[in-house]
Design a protein around this nucleic acid. Sequence first.
DNA 1: GCGGACTGCTTACCT
DNA 2: ACAGGTAAGCAGTCCGCG
Length: 846
Amino acid sequence: MTVNELIQFVNGVVVDTSNLERGFLLGAGYDGDKKVAYLKILDPDTQKVYYYYDKTFHKPYCFSKKSPSELAYLRKRDDVEDIVVEEKWDPLTDSMIKVSKIITKDPLAVGGHPSEKSIRNIETCYEADIKYYENYLYDLGLIPGTFVKLENNKVQEILNEFSEEMQTALKEAMRESDEYLKKYIEEYAALLSQPFPQIKRAAIDIEVLTEVENRLPDPEKATQPIISIALAGNDGKKVVFAIRRNDVETGSAPEMPKDVELKFFDDEKQMLIEFFKEITNYPIIVTFNGDSFDMPYLYHRAQNLKIPRDAIPIVLGREIASIVHGIHIDLYKTFVNKSIQGYAFGNRYNEHTLNAISEGILGEEKVEVEGSINDLPMMNLAFYNYTDAKLTLELTSYDNDLLMKLLITLSRIARMNIEDTSRLSVSNWIRSMLINEHRRRNALIPRKEEIEQKGQEASSKAIIKGKKYQGGFVVEPLPGVHFHVVVLDFASLYPSIIKVFNLSYETVKCPHEECKTNILPNTAYWVCTKMRGMTSLLIGALRDIRVNYFKRLSKKAKSKEEKEFYNVISQALKVVLNASYGVMGFENFPFYCLPVAESTTALGRYSIQQTIEKAKSLGVTVIYGDTDSLFLKNPTEDQVKEIVDFAKEKLGIDLEVDKVYRYVAFSQRKKNYIGVYEDGSVEVKGLSGKKSHVPDFIKNVFFDVINILGKVKSPQDFEIAKEEIRKRIRKAYNDIKNRNVPLEELAFKVMLNKPIEKYTDTTPQHVKAAMLLAQKKEVKPGDIIAFVKTTTKDGVKPVEMARKDEIDVDKYIEFMESTFEQLLDALGFSFDEIIGATKLEDFFSF
DNA sequence: GCGGACTGCTTACCT
DNA sequence: ACAGGTAAGCAGTCCGCG
């Protein structure tokens, strides 16, 4: 059965439509049976997804530098359609060259087969590792996440109309940009300010009877019955489909919301059929781990139960699962993405479980289950199941559908299927963005090793052993307490440098003789004076549009909704910009270019050091700085202005006042300080006390002390604070000494990053604990191991296996001491003086 | 056989 | 599977020590 026939069943309509006034492009795909590319287009009015099959006769292809006659032997293959000569611009030589375009009948003829069946395995090809449907999108100029129209079988982007405010803001944003940059900024403004459509979506979650406790059933075999399925829709739909069982109690779930529909079935097959019908109402299906569990399980279970193929709306790929009537988003993959975790959600979760992520982002937790799912009373199981689906949905709907909007915006920037954007990492997004740029310039994409010819060895030496080149510069902090500190910050420093210094793989060490004298300061490289680099333009435009356009529009917004709209776009841009420099130094990135990465940080060091010199010359004390920031001690407004102007005029980079602290306390450590704002709120950076592995008990004391410090308004106040701090720490000290602390609060929580057996060089404490734990239950990479320090043989025990009397009290006192030392150091008092080291015995008399 | 100095491994943080 | 820089704790090693 072809995808086409399937869809006809699912939607009950002929889906290969030729006319649609305003559709929303979800993505592209390839139909292996019809051998043709297709688009999935959502009609926002009906919430139905139409398939548009290519009618431009687009074919798979790749390029070779050999002549067609040298490649003539390929013509004998029946999967090769034609070989034609094309002229393309070669970025590395800055010249037009002739290449052979090998056109095939099947994407597998280009690549994807492990053998000689794929041409890229037998010839040195160009652009042969781009997925066929990606090529289709680039070549037709279509962008997933945007609005398109279908008119007489032609598909076209619908361009955005600009309001007056947007026009004005755009002019303002482009004021300082060069001619080249302006074009890009205008395009991005139009692309990214498109509205977000309302799309129906539902989160689903299944429960399966387990054979062996604590072991996940095999989704390929799907031998065990599905006993419950929950669905939570953004239209308010809440359903649990469950099997009526006699072997467990009915149970009760008083917390279950009244509006959850409960549909009980005697027959599993009937349940699945009903469920499949229900989900076809939702063009977006959301799961947590659906790619590797729920979707393949449902699919194979349905097959085992002899449900006809055309009643199963699931399409399984090699690693991803999709749905016929729309798209499937597996949130697990989205939340594992480091850029999403860090830049979009501020590292509010560390562990990649539904529970940990929900807790971090929503402040809600899963329902706890003791023992096996198998023995759970029916109602309790339904409630547990429903809660998971609800949390999954909420992760996409919280903050006004923030995540969905981010994914759509990122798809627009990356020009990538929404399904792919949600699963792939930032280097893939940027790769796609750059490939598209090459296509529209008719540029041949160099092979990776050709770019690497530019330089394999760095000219700077990394400070950290094993790293390739030197990074940011950190100023030695001036220890002590400093009142009225102004923090200056280069606005997205590295993207600015890439923009201002024209950094790109083809412009750094460009082929022109006359550019060789144009040396980049603080580096061993020259940069092109004749052409604007591609990454410089793209990253530069993204930077300018974020800083000068969306951020300004957000400040001027008239409504909350408008403000939020601009903030989402700004946030998505931040994610891409923050990674834009890093990918240049990432070996597996297809446009990896060490000279570009190295120049970026070298120019960063140059910028901050020049600015420090300027500050010094004005008599301003720089008490600290890290990569792109400078902490100034009690500067005048004029001094600040002069430094900011210097950066703009002499370096061409925006330097802004980021924050003003009432006071800052530094120890002698870098990346380690507390800053107190005028309103008494406190920012803690790098101190052990805030680190996630620290036992809750110590963390609580730490933050109590921080709160006390927030109340300090003048140097005199420290005396009072000191007394309060002393009391708080003494109490904690006593509690530990007297074993008055619950075990859980003493647990260190450290992540296991690899399987236990891979720790061959050393056996850290959390691994020792994990080994003990492994005797009782499965321990996997990514798990957080909770352990306490004990006086037993290994020195540690998993918290659930330890007793209070085994706790190594002295180790905890030691740990507490070093944690507070960082803080007390900076304030000029010591732990000993707080505790009163000579009076230790006093505490035992309590 | 033990302790101190040292290095390397590991994790979590900062930009 | 974006980068490098820093802090901290602990594991393991080397060396001296009659």
